[in-house]
Design a protein around this nucleic acid. Structure first.
Lengths: 137, 137
DNA sequence: CTATTACTCTATTAAAACGGTAGGGAATGT
DNA sequence: ACATTCCCTACCGTTTTAATAGAGTAATAG
């Protein structure tokens, strides 16, 4: 399951996408509109900024804003950034690979199936963007 | 990611499947062969027994054994049993559904995509069985 | 120049989950 | 009776999660 952090990130990002024309948006506005703890949200937005997904402006008229168009922000990137690996086993993770301690990868049958799961998951997450998860009107 | 518990469960189950002809297998044998902490493994096997996947026999000549054929034990069931939901969001889980606190499901675009991810994942996990993850020889 | 606004950063905390351990109890076979 | 082996409950230490606190820095208005 996705952590609250990641879920909040999606809420915040879709809010920003849906209100792009308003320019920089206050953390406090997102916090109120999407019912997310203000201080927790601060951390999340900062992390998104540091990884190049968001830009920010300080002082009056400041706030956060999307740097790229919603259709150019892939869902997999956001999940990996805040939650880490998408794969179900470390030994089949593309971005966070780690050797399994107790299994010999060459004869383990589990990693074959789990690779398939990973591919099926990524087929969706890498081809869907923020634009695809905006609120339906 | 799958918890160690679930990973160990798969190790134990495949070991049992690969040694079915030997009759009941000792916890200690599985523990040694697959390098899993004995006491931790006890808990796991007990849980698998309670949910009807394994049978057991006490006393001399006792141990654990598969109740069904490996091809009739689906991977999704094992994961759900030990790790809970397979879906990435509680509001799209088939077996552990919970309403999302901060989102209105009818207009939330995220659950559409996450349902798709879930379906793609289950397409693999519900159709693959223990037999499909046995060691390659 | 200074007050205000608003993001930035580091640290702390409480609760839950995870991974593992301890030890007696109950059933079974000889 | 006795050794064997699973059964059961409780406990423990560490890490992660979710959230909070508070001081710091940068931008802007006037």
């Amino acid at each position: 399951m996705l952590s609250k952090k990641t879920q909040y990130a999606f809420h915040a990002l879709t809010y920003l996408a849906e209100n792009q024309e308003k320019g920089p948006i206050l953390i406090s506005e997102i916090s109120e509109e999407r019912k997310i703890s203000l201080k927790f949200l601060e951390n999340i937005l900062l992390e998104l900024k540091k990884s190049g997904i968001l830009g920010s402006k300080k002082g009056k008229g400041g706030g956060y804003y999307l740097i790229k168009a919603p259709e150019d922000i892939g869902l997999a990137k956001i999940i990996r950034l805040l939650d880490g690996p998408i794969a179900l086993l470390p030994c089949v993770s593309l971005n966070y690979y780690e050797r399994c301690e107790n299994c010999q990868e060459d004869i383990c049958g589990l990693n074959v199936v789990m690779s398939e799961v990973r591919d099926n998951t990524l087929k969706v997450l890498e081809h869907k963007s923020l634009k695809d998860v905006l609120r339906k009107h």
